[in-house]
């Protein structure tokens, strides 16, 4: 699993870490049941504050991608297919915003696709 950070990017560091984990799941570099590196270990390797990593993990937990277990750290629980769909949707939303569609327009488009 490769996680990269652009320190001069406008995207917050914790968001970049979360994106890295999502991509790793999407590309099947990590799967259900796999343990993510300990927050402290990852923070040290990436040269960021441990709370930045924890914030990324918390976001992933809220999305149902990982579970935080005492003693075992962060474990991947999200099914790859579900995470993939979510990632694709994020891409679609980003594309739609880029060409100037409003959130209502995007919802309309989604509704149409359903």
């Amino acid at each position: 699993m490769l996680i990269k950070l652009k320190t001069d990017s406008r995207i917050p560091l914790h968001e970049q870490i979360a994106t890295g984990v999502r991509r790793a799941i999407q590309e099947e570099q990590v799967g259900v049941g796999d343990r993510l590196p300990a927050a402290r270990e990852l923070a040290r390797a990436l040269d960021v504050n441990m709370h930045t990593v924890l914030r990324a993990y918390a976001a992933l937990r809220d999305e149902g991608v990982i579970e935080m277990r005492r003693g075992r750290g962060a474990v991947v629980i999200g099914e790859v297919s579900r995470v993939q769909v979510r990632a694709s949707l994020r891409g679609v939303v980003a594309d739609a915003r880029r060409i100037g569609l409003s959130d209502t327009d995007i919802l309309d488009e989604l509704q149409g696709a359903l």
């Binding site: 699993m1 490769l2 996680i3 990269k4 950070l5 652009k6 001069d8 570099q29 993510l36 590196p37």
Partner: peptide, 11 residues
Amino acid sequence: IELGEHAVWVG
């Protein structure tokens, strides 16, 4: 990975 990027790989 480019200059200015921090990265870690775990496997």
